[in-house]
Structures are given as structure tokens and as C-alpha cells.
Design a protein around this nucleic acid. Structure first.
Length: 764
RNA sequence: GGUCGCAUAGCUCAGUUGGUAGAGCACUACGUUCACAUCGUAGUUGUCACAGGUUCGAGUCCUGUUGCGACCACCA
């Protein structure tokens, strides 16, 4: 046993504590399982405060259950993060002077792998610094070989089961990354825009029909003008033809309920290839579709007048509007507020675009996924999130799972020369299938699209455990116990894991879903680089110690409420940890740990009291952790140590230094270290090692004290004594030592017999 | 437009089945007594957003209003 340093300096021991504990993070294979899937961070990720929160809460659960004798698996890993990673690496390559556009697919993929091997997964080290007690040797990467095989297996199974299909549809098109993205990857922002009222000439008449649009450049893809069937203003032109300005194309005026008499002029242009509603109208009326924007958002030549060809859509829009003005085709311009979709990664306006894509029929998968939440097999904490889940699930649309990028799982589909499609687990199998149709292997071309990153993430609960092989890990650790994550990925990830898991495993992937808060700054603002209000968890860990950050995050985790995190709060909690440190120093200075702790015997009211309080707080903390009330549990820890252990018990101890009470002090403190270890693992582990008192990682918290008999009567006596002392102090403060009441209260101390009376000194 | 949430001390927030409003920070006073001034002791601070209703009793349950936030939603 070494003497504790006078000051608490976490930097001196955190690394060592973590290294020494590493081995204990592996599942033991013995006992009931407790399993958490660590939400895999992006391979490009760097620890931000949101990560710090989610990993802290998970680590608390994992450490708690491990300590309680469960066979604990916290499954770590990282995600290949398709678009994000391709973007990061491409930028880096460009910065190094490489022309990414000129690289072949194979070259770019190779470059990204190289980057991944050299600099990917930096976040692992940061997770370790945070104290995450995960078995890192079991880490999975969504693009590792076995994972890729599993993804193919899933894709092929779903395709052959009729749940995946290829179709030419309108999708959300990102003109910056030149790929389709899913509905979820869009952020709509409200902004100012202009509504232009444009005249179309009606043929064989002198009339014009005016339509309003915010996107005039798409007019060259117009296939009709629609008016409401009951709109008397326009009844007479239904069935006539209108001409699209600057082109020789003419389009019919049709009658359709989609046209809203109260909006715009009541006439609406129908552009099926560039608008979701118009697409539906087009289908109803058997209209053709004409695409006028290319993959980068430039005007395509075929149907567009000469003066706009090849222009980027925004420029084309500007020139076109000028032209309208010149030619008196613009009736009016109106400033409006409207919602515009942006790509959440690219930040560019998303255009609906008609392309061939792969879709997953999520509707069919959603039915069971809804059921398991309805019947309580899968529970949300806080419960309100299940409404969010149902809302989305019950209105789910086909999921566009193909992406036109190179970094990801390439879709295992091969095309024959006449558009035949072979979806197989491998190229070899595709060749065999193709040959049955007389197609030679050199005529086969593999699909170039890759899968949406979330497609593979959705498989995380079972593929990490070895699926499709029937492994003993799957047997033991599936389904997992609790999923801890933020509300922002309920749709992206949680819902899809439930759907995929139910389909492939026939069982739920996890029982509980704990949805934690969003971390904001101390003024309630969302943290963002541009606002400069970002709190870097690594900096906080350096400045105040990792335990202080963890304890702060846990104690602020009130369910259903966002967290406002300021440096000040972390400092306050650092002070609390310093308090623990100093309590340890005091006990050590009393020689309490010198000969090790011996079996507990309660021989005094004071000893009975502190053990009773410890047992109570322990039971509360257990319950609170099981209820995911990390905030309560943190407050329990703080209350016990400060109010009960330090402020009364230790003070009283100073007046009753017999061996029994000293032994109780040591044992109670040791238990306290165990109980609080999941929250503040570094300082508790370090203290237990230096003082050589217990193994906080292994021993179950209640092992020593569980059987001790407590006298409630004696506990109450001490409670009364504590209260009396409080009253005496208060009276002394208000009315002074000469007041009658003070003297009266003071005289009551005489009623206390024996040992308690000896604490009289603490009244002073 | 739809859905969900939030409003309690100067600030940040607890308040689990209705039963005399709590904590931390801040502030005030005192205190360096054998762990700790990164501390201790004591103290001050409330129309529980507003208006109704249910009840013996409402911060808590119900209805409505206001303010704020989040998510979802066909860009005429």
C-alpha cells in the first residue's frame, strides 16, 4: 500500500488503470448474459460530446451488470460510413494533388482502404480514454470479409423473397455526390423563395394559362397542365393543348384533383420526372416522363432551348426568368417562404430525379416490427419515443438502398446483355446461373451501385455475433439486452435493426431501447463548429479528469430532456471526486487500511447507522440503474458520500476511534468504491488498488454487507441525533449561544447515552 | 398542416401512486477544529407560465390559452 498523493491528479493514473483492467472487459461465458451493442461510430469519427454521453451511459450499464455477475458483452465496432468516408478521403486525395475524377473505381476503393488502415478508427483510442470497458479484440467493421458475406446473404435472401426490387422511380438526388439518397438523409429547411407566375399559350385561341412555380427550369419536362375538375374558371380549356415557351413541345390541359383551386392560380404544371406529386399524376394519366436535369444538375440538351443547354439549374433559372420578363411571359413574382430539401451530408438542394434504383419493400417488414413494440416485447425508455417509432413505421415507404458511390457493399447483382438480372451470393454463382440462360460469363456485368450504409448497420445485432453461421455467440448473446442511442437514429438504425432482425432471426434484437438526450451548450444551443460553442470531451477529460466528465453526463441524464452541458458543471463534479479522494486520504491517515480489512462486526450505533445508510443507498442505486435513471443514481452516490459518510460519519468517527468502527469505515468506503465504480471507474479503481482494499471490478457490491443485520431502531436514534445537532447549529446561528432555545436544545444532548454523547464535540 | 415534448428559486434542473415546494450553482454570515477552502456550518430566495375544472386537498389529474423546442409532412 502506498500513501495517496495529497492532490487528486487523474492524469497520473487513468491510462494505467485502464490498461490493467483491459482483460476484465471480455465476456466470461459464465452466467446470465447482459449484452449491449455499441452503436458503431463512423470510421472517420472523432469523439464528440454526444459520443461521450452515449458511451458513458452504456459503460455504466455494462460495468454494473458485469460487477453484478452477468456474462457481459459490449459489442464494439466501426461503420464504413459510405458517403461520409468517400467524401473525406476524396478531399484528402485532392489535397494531395490526386485527381479523384480520373481514378477508376478500383483505384479509389483501394485508396480508401489504405486510408482506413492508416488513419481510420482513431476513435477507438478516444473511447478507451473515456473508459469504455469493451472487449476490443471482438471489434467488427461493417466491411470486413465476413460482414460482406453476410450482407450478400441478406440481399440475396430478400431479393429472392420478393422484398428487394429494382425499379425506375423518382428518388432524392444529390447533385453534389451524384447519388440517390434516402428520405431520411434529407433535411428540409424553410427559406425564402420566389414564386414565378408564367404564361403558357393555349393553342387555337388567344388565351394564356398562367401557372405558378418555384422551379421554372423544370418546365421543359412538363407533360401537362392540371386544373381541378370542379374549377369553373378553367373548365373550358380542359382538353386543349398548351405550348411550352421556347420549345415546340405542346402539352394537354388535364383535369385532376391534385390541382388545388386555392393555391397559385389553380393551374399547376405537371412535371412527372421532377416532382413526386407530379409523378403520381403522370401515372394516373399515362403521361410520358422527360428528364431535363443531368446527374450534376445541369440542363440536359434534348428538350431544353439552346440558350440554356448545359447550364447549372440555378443559373438556368436566372436566365430563364430574365427571358420571361423580356418576352412578357411573366405575370408576377411573389416572395414566399417554403420548404426546400437539402442533403444532410452535401448541403446542396436535393432534386427528385428519375433513375433506376434498388428498393426494399419496408412495408412488409414493418408489420412485425410494429407488433413487437405494441405488445411490449421491445420497450422504449422513455416510453414516448414509441409514438415516434409508430408514426414512421406505419407510414413507411420503400427504402431506396442503392447508392451511386464506390465505398460500400457492392450490390450482388449481375446484368446480362439483354437486361437479365442475376442476384447471387457471389460472382461464381451468378455465372453458373447465367449459363443456364446461355449467357457467357464475359457478357455479365456486375451492378456498380453500392448499398446504403444503413443497410449493413441494420444487420449489426446478429452479424456481429457470427450470422449466418449458427455460432455459440448467437446462441448465447442474442437477443441483446439494451440498446442505448439517440433519438436522431430511431429511424435510420433502430427501426431497421428491428425489421431485419425479425426477418432473419425471427426474434427481437433487443429488449430495451434507452433513448438518451441531445447534448447542448450551457445556453441550450445546439453545439456546432460554426457557432464555436462545441465542448470537446477530450479537452474536458484532460482538464478535469475523465471521471468528472462521465459523472457530469450521467447526473444530467434526466430522461426526455436535453442536456445543457457547461464547463462549470464538470468542474463541480471534479470537486466532488476530489472529495472522495480526500476522504480516502483521511481514512488512510487513520491507519484504517494498514492491516487490511477484517470481517465486519457491528458493535455501535454509529456503525449500525452508516451500514444501514449504505445498504439503503445501494438498493436505490441498483434500482435506478435498472430503471435507466442515471441522474438519480449519480445523486444517490453524491448524497451518500457527502452528507452521510463525510459530513456526519467521518466527523463522528473522530470521536470514537475504536478498531471496530475503523474497520466499518474502511469496509463501507470500499463498498462505496464498488458501487460508484460504474460511474467513475478510474478514481475508484485507482483508490482500491493503492489502498489495497478490494477489487472494484470483480466483487459484487453487496457481497460483504448483504447479510449484515441492521437495527432500524438504532438507526432511527442516530437519525434523531443528527437532526438534533442540526437544530442546535441552526439555533446557534440564528439566536446565538445565549438564547434560551439554544440552551434547551443543547441540554437535550445530555439525554444521549454513551457513545453518541461522545460526538458532542462536533457541535462545537 | 400533423405529432410529441417543455414552462418550478437569480441560473441549471429534480419533484415516480394527488397530501406542508427540493438540489446544485450563485448570494449572505461564520469558520482554517488531527482528509478536503476543489472545504465545512448555517442562512436568504418561489403567484410551480396563464385561465378554468375534478377533489377535503392539485406543481402533480382534466380542458383551454400563451410562449418555446423537436420531429414528421406533396417545394404550385
Amino acid at each position: 500500500m502506498n500513501t495517496l498523493d495529497k492532490t487528486y491528479n487523474p492524469a497520473l493514473f487513468e491510462k494505467e488503470v485502464y490498461q490493467n483492467a483491459l482483460e476484465s472487459f471480455s465476456p466470461t461465458g459464465i452466467g446470465r448474459a447482459f449484452v449491449i451493442l455499441m452503436p458503431p461510430p463512423n470510421v472517420t469519427g472523432r469523439l464528440h460530446v454526444g459520443h461521450a454521453l452515449t458511451y458513458t451511459l452504456q459503460d455504466i450499464l455494462v460495468r454494473y451488470y458485469r460487477q453484478s455477475g452477468f456474462d457481459t458483452l459490449w459489442q464494439p465496432g466501426i461503420d464504413h460510413a459510405g458517403i461520409a468516408t468517400q467524401m473525406v478521403v476524396s478531399k484528402k486525395l485532392e489535397a494531395d494533388g490526386v485527381n479523384v475524377e480520373s481514378l477508376s473505381r478500383e483505384e479509389l476503393v483501394k485508396a480508401i482502404w489504405k486510408w482506413k488502415e492508416e488513419s481510420g478508427g482513431e476513435i477507438f483510442e478516444q473511447q478507451k480514454a473515456l473508459g469504455c470497458s469493451a472487449p476490443w479484440h471482438l471489434s467488427r467493421f461493417t466491411m470486413d470479409e465476413e460482414f460482406c458475406k453476410a450482407v450478400n446473404e441478406v440481399f440475396v435472401t430478400l431479393y429472392k423473397g420478393g422484398l428487394i426490387f429494382r425499379s425506375k422511380r423518382l428518388v432524392n438526388w444529390d447533385t453534389k455526390f451524384k447519388t440517390a439518397i434516402s428520405d431520411l438523409e434529407i433535411q428540409t429547411r424553410e427559406e425564402k423563395g420566389t414564386l414565378w407566375y408564367i404564361k403558357y399559350k393555349i393553342l387555337e385561341s388567344n388565351e394564356f394559362v398562367t401557372v405558378a412555380t418555384t422551379r421554372p427550369e423544370t418546365m421543359f419536362g412538363d407533360m401537362a397542365i392540371a386544373v381541378h375538375p370542379e374549377d369553373d374558371r378553367y373548365r373550358h380549356i380542359v382538353g386543349k393543348m398548351a405550348s411550352i415557351p421556347y420549345t415546340d413541345r405542346i402539352i394537354p390541359v388535364i383535369s385532376d384533383e391534385h390541382a388545388d383551386m386555392t393555391k397559385g392560380t389553380g393551374c399547376v404544371k405537371i412535371t412527372p420526372a421532377h416532382d413526386y406529386d407530379d409523378f403520381a399524376v403522370g401515372k394516373r394519366h399515362g403521361l410520358d416522363m422527360i428528364t431535363v436535369l443531368d446527374e450534376e444538375g445541369h440542363m440536359m440538351p434534348e428538350y431544353v432551348p439552346e440558350f440554356l443547354k448545359g447550364l447549372y439549374l440555378k443559373k438556368a433559372r436566372k436566365i430563364l426568368v430574365e427571358k420571361f420578363k423580356e418576352d412578357d411571359l411573366l405575370v408576377k413574382e411573389e416572395e414566399i417562404l417554403h420548404f426546400v430539401p437539402y442533403g444532410d451530408r452535401s448541403g446542396t438542394v436535393i432534386e427528385p430525379r428519375l433513375t433506376n434504383q434498388w428498393f426494399l419493400n419496408a412495408k412488409e417488414l414493418s408489420e412485425d416490427a410494429i407488433k413487437v413494440v405494441e405488445n411490449g416485447e421491445v420497450k422504449f425508455y422513455p416510453e414516448k419515443w414509441k409514438n415516434t417509432y409508430f408514426d414512421w413505421m406505419k407510414n413507411i415507404e420503400p427504402w431506396c438502398i442503392s447508392r451511386q458511390i464506390v465505398w460500400g457493399h457492392r450490390i450482388p447483382a449481375w446484368y446480362g446483355p439483354n437486361g437479365e438480372i442475376f442476384v447471387e451470393r457471389s460472382e461464381e454463382e451468378a455465372i453458373i446461373e447465367a449459363e443456364k440462360f446461355g449467357i457467357k460469363k464475359d457478357r455479365l456485368r456486375q451492378e456498380t451501385d453500392v448499398l446504403d450504409t444503413w443497410f449493413s448497420s441494420a444487420l449489426w445485432p446478429f452479424v456481429t455475433l457470427g450470422w449466418p453461421k449458427a455460432t455459440k455467440e448467437l446462441e448465447k448473446y442474442y437477443p441483446t439486452s439494451t440498446l442505448v442511442t439517440g433519438f436522431d437514429i430511431i429511424f435510420f438504425w433502430v427501426a431497421r435493426m428491428i425489421m431485419m432482425s425479425l426477418y432473419f432471426m425471427k426474434r427481437i434484437p433487443f429488449q430495451d431501447i434507452y433513448i438518451h438526450a441531445l447534448v447542448r451548450d450551457d445556453k441550450g444551443q445546439k453545439m456546432s463548429k460554426s457557432k464555436g460553442n462545441v465542448i470537446d470531451p477530450l479537452e474536458m477529460m484532460n482538464e478535469f479528469g475523465t471521471d468528472a466528465l462521465r459523472f457530469t453526463l450521467a447526473s444530467l441524464s434526466t430522461p426526455g430532456r436535453d442536456i445543457r452541458l457547461g464547463k462549470e458543471q464538470i468542474k463541480i463534479n471534479r470537486n466532488f471526486i476530489t472529495k472522495i479522494w480526500n476522504a480516502a486520504r483521511f481514512l488512510q491517515s487513520k491507519g484504517i487500511f494498514d492491516k487490511g480489512l477484517s470481517k465486519l462486526i457491528i458493535t455501535s450505533k454509529l456503525g449500525n447507522w452508516i451500514v444501514a445508510k449504505l445498504k439503503k443507498i445501494q438498493a436505490e442505486i441498483n434500482q435506478n440503474i435498472r430503471d435507466y435513471r442515471f441522474d438519480y443514481a449519480a445523486k444517490n452516490i453524491q448524497f451518500f458520500l457527502r452528507e452521510e459518510f463525510c459530513d456526519f460519519f467521518i466527523e463522528a468517527l473522530k470521536f470514537q476511534e475504536d478498531e471496530d468502527i475503523k474497520n466499518i469505515a474502511g469496509s463501507v468506503f470500499a463498498e462505496f468504491l464498488k458501487i460508484s465504480n460504474p460511474f467513475i471507474p478510474f478514481v475508484t479503481d485507482h483508490l482500491s488498488k493503492v489502498l489495497d482494499i478490494c477489487d472494484v471490478l470483480v466483487l459484487r457490491p453487496d457481497m460483504d454487507l448483504g447479510l449484515l443485520q441492521i437495527s432500524e431502531k438504532q438507526e432511527k436514534e442516530v437519525d434523531d441525533f443528527v437532526e438534533l445537532i442540526h437544530n442546535i447549529r441552526s439555533e446557534k446561528h440564528i439566536n446565538g449561544v445565549d438564547s434560551e432555545k439554544y440552551l434547551l436544545l443543547r441540554s437535550r444532548l445530555d439525554n444521549w447515552e454513551g457513545e453518541l454523547k461522545r460526538f458532542i464535540g462536533i457541535v462545537r
